[in-house]
Design a binder for these strands. Structure first.
Lengths: 246, 246
DNA sequence: TTATTATTGTCTCACTTTGGAACAATAATA
DNA sequence: TATTATTGTTCCAAAGTGAGACAATAATAA
């Protein structure tokens, strides 16, 4: 984890970064049937924003995404997908960034690189929100999980970015039923019941699924190992535990 | 169609454009069961490349894409989708651009903006190649259709970009069975037979489809109006003609 | 005029997938 | 011992798909 970036105060030109290019992250956090996303808040401004970042001049775009993601969450090896690049002019509004900079004691000179127009590459990630250590960036004061269906108003076009990310995540889930270990495994305990897995799907898709069909489909995919039963303490039959194969 | 861009020779800094940001276009051309893509060639260099372009400082990203597409093909109102943004460092190789600039009589100074690193937003388009007027850009000498399964070697990572575009187009075709008038209609005559429509699908997907299943599915979608029969001159039953509803 | 040929529109049948309910099994509790 | 909630599985009807069959029919050949 390298934080070798020149501090903002000493870097009025943004010289370490590719100019005019940003990344915005929709970091979905799942745990126990809850889906949240990570937002930054700027103190004394009432402004909320998606975590974002910039690309260093000698860094691959996707590596930059992983670096920033690690800075905000302390996590590496995360399921991460690029989903759209946002470049409308109407997302170029200096007002909120001026407010943020002033609240931070920075001087928003007209030429400051943070006030220029940015094209932003959107990424979404999916992690277990209990495993992350949310960390504000140099401009923000808090970095917190918010319930997806109860988000505060967001800066600029960030609400739109969240919508598109969610849409893409759900579509990806439907078809790319591949690579479970890369995305689903980190969101569940090492062993889990079929109900746990189904709830994970239902939470992400935002809709109920049929129990028998879900079980049939999952078992037919040949990705699960069935283990011993789980004596859970509930007044009912004990479910089997599963884990992902290999 | 505005070509208000300062000519390359007088614009060594690329001042009209967002720095470091490019677009690459995979323009699929269909006609009569053939699928081609549009490539630029640079004379005396043996270099082939995808059409590309830059974003003006006061232009929406997607508007820039439509502008460049119109410049290369003379077509507006085209089916156009953004599919991925490419930002690896290994696509930053000055050699081919130096060759191209020298062949054009330009001086590739070390500071020339065209020799800097670019992040590139990839778009794909789908048009009838008989309706386009391919037009080279200021750096290239020819702009020509090439059979998709017989492409020359391409500059930098452009072969990779084509692969990803084709993958996305095919996946989009499978699910977004919606909005036929926006993409399929411009590729067919005003009226067409079921065989014409099936061949269009087969050509794009690169595989045969079952005739009876295809007919059944298309009719069930309720997007076609059946017209009179077509007496085609072939030694067989005359097929019905169809057109897209509304 | 008649037979031949290629293609079309539709149908059939087997097979698979899915939705939805039913049912016995069973771990805890009353 | 009866009750309760949940589980694993089965069943059946409905819907969808793959593969082939078949009659209809324009043009051509005999």
């Amino acid at each position: 984890m390298s934080e070798q970036i020149t501090p903002l105060e000493q870097n009025p030109e943004g010289i370490d970064f590719l100019p005019g290019l940003a990344m915005d992250f929709v970091i979905f956090g799942y745990h126990q049937y809850q889906l949240k996303i990570l937002l930054l808040e700027y103190r004394n401004t009432d402004l909320f924003a998606l975590p974002g970042g910039f690309v260093k001049t000698h860094e691959n775009l996707n590596d930059a995404a992983r670096r920033v993601l690690a800075e905000r969450t302390s996590l590496t090896n995360i399921y991460l997908e690029q989903f759209y690049t946002f470049g409308d002019l109407d997302r170029y509004d200096q007002a909120p960034m001026r407010t943020i900079m002033q609240a931070k004691g920075l001087v928003p000179t007209d030429e400051h690189w943070l006030l220029r127009r940015f094209i932003s590459v959107g990424y979404y990630a999916l992690i277990d929100f209990t495993k992350a250590v949310p960390t504000p960036d140099p401009l923000s004061d808090t970095c917190t999980w918010y319930d997806l269906d109860n988000l505060p108003g967001l800066m600029l076009d960030h609400t739109n970015i969240v919508q598109k990310a969610l849409q893409t995540l759900r579509a990806d889930l439907d078809r790319k039923l591949i690579g479970y270990d890369s995305w689903a495994a980190p969101l569940l305990a090492k062993t889990f019941t079929m109900a746990d897995l189904q709830k994970l799907y239902e939470t992400i898709l935002g809709q109920k699924l049929r129990r028998s069909s879900f079980q049939r489909k999952m078992l037919s995919l040949d990705i699960l190992d069935r283990l011993e039963k789980q004596y859970s303490g509930g007044a009912h039959k004990a479910p089997y535990l599963y884990q992902f194969k290999q």
